[in-house]
Amino acid sequence: MADNVVKLRGGDSEKITINLGHVDLGRIDLLVQEGFYSNRTDFIRSAIRSQLGLHAPEIARSIERHTLELGLRDYSAADLEAVRRAGETLHVKVVGLARIAADVTPELARATIGSLTVLGALQASPEVKRALADRIS
């Protein structure tokens, strides 16, 4: 199933909310006004990428140590049926986005997914999320 792992592109994003002090926000606005950044979001993305780049070796070592998959990981009913037929249990570890397809029933998910760790976002039906609630960390 490793062929289901794809790298995320820049357009794939998740919305977050942050609180900033007035002074920091004003300094960001000043940089935008002076033309260093096109808008606040551009500045914040740039700052985040800079920090991620600064810690890239640590991130890579952590991903390797925890045997995490990086990017997008899709699980369809067909994938999980193959796991069940093989008598196996998945221990999913993803940095990015894990998607459990709409055709996956809660019963199939519980029968095949032993644990689920997602650093990023998990997309699954509310029923599947409830069925796996005790296995999601």
Rank of each mutant, 00 (worst) to 15 (best):
M1A: 08
V5E: 07
V6S: 09
V6Y: 13
V6M: 09
K7C: 10
R9Q: 12
D12F: 08
K15F: 08
I16C: 08
T17A: 05
T17S: 14
L20Y: 01
L20T: 10
L25W: 11
G26A: 03
I28W: 12
L31E: 06
G35D: 10
G35H: 09
S38N: 05
S38P: 02
S38L: 12
D42E: 15
I44C: 12
S46N: 10
L54A: 13
L54N: 12
H55R: 09
H55I: 06
I59Y: 15
A60C: 10
A60M: 11
H66D: 15
L68Q: 14
L70G: 00
G71P: 14
L72V: 15
R73V: 02
Y75V: 04
S76N: 15
R84D: 05
R84V: 13
R85S: 11
R85L: 04
A86Q: 10
H91A: 02
V94T: 00
G96D: 00
G96M: 02
L97H: 03
L97V: 15
A98T: 03
I100F: 02
A102H: 14
D103M: 01
V104G: 07
L108P: 04
L108A: 05
A111C: 07
G114L: 07
T117M: 02
G120M: 05
A121C: 11
L122N: 08
Q123N: 10
A124I: 07
S125W: 13
P126I: 00
K129W: 11
R130T: 10
R130K: 09
A131N: 06
A131P: 10
S137N: 14
